[in-house]
């Protein structure tokens, strides 16, 4: 078990309000890190801070034992980001969106087909995302997650708009990813039932 990510002495302000100080976290391979807390406690901000979209006031985040800021591009190749927004273009169809994604990352066509198969999206490839339901759009976002082949999954409210089957699909995907040696950070207020060791960070 090796360390994927860790952070120490993290502090974040939004405006004048201090969301947290002296926060620590660590994530090893095969582990799930759940960020808990009520609405407005800074779960999303914390996640955005780890990803480098926000800057922490103090503290450092380390990735494979170096600072994230020292090799930010390498770090970005190793993470994939899923937020409550789909992050795909509503006017393009599923295949066009995923081909764009595989152009940005080093993936191939075979992988793309396998992902479509896995998420049972093969029938929807020709429709623009606009005409898919919110739940189906979430599945497209999940397809992007699988396509990226990144070790660290960062998920902000992954269960938004998903039905029961979708909910257990997400849990299943996370379990597979953890068994495969990946790591996963989830900000969610819903219970997760995942095989693999789970760490928790609570925000007030």
């Amino acid at each position: 078990m090796t360390e994927l990510l860790s952070g120490s002495d993290l502090c974040l302000f939004r405006g004048d309000r201090c969301l947290f100080t002296a926060l620590e976290f660590a994530l090893n391979t095969g582990e799930l890190l759940v960020i808990e807390g009520p609405n407005g406690s800074g779960k999303t901000s914390f996640l955005r801070g780890i990803a480098g979209l926000l800057e922490f006031e103090t503290g450092t985040v380390r990735w494979s034992s170096k600072r994230v800021t020292d090799d930010y591009q390498g770090f970005r190749a190793d993470i994939v980001w899923l937020s409550h927004k789909v992050g795909c273009k509503a006017d393009l169809n599923l295949l066009e969106n995923l081909r764009f994604e595989s152009g940005l990352r080093a993936t191939d066509e075979a992988r793309l087909q396998a992902v479509l198969e896995r998420l049972s999206l093969s029938r929807l490839t020709e429709l623009p995302l606009r005409s898919l339901s919110a739940g189906q759009q979430r599945r497209v976002a999940l397809a992007r997650l699988l396509l990226a082949r990144a070790r660290i999954w960062m998920m902000d409210e992954p269960f938004t708009n998903l039905d029961k089957a979708g909910h257990s699909l997400v849990e299943e995907l996370i379990s597979e990813h953890l068994a495969d040696g990946g790591g996963c950070i989830v900000a969610s207020h819903q219970a997760l039932n995942v095989d693999g060791s789970t760490r928790r960070v609570s925000l007030q």
Partner: peptide
Amino acid sequence: DGSLDQLILSPQP
């Protein structure tokens, strides 16, 4: 639509 986050976090410079 959140694509900007994805572009910034993609491994491209």
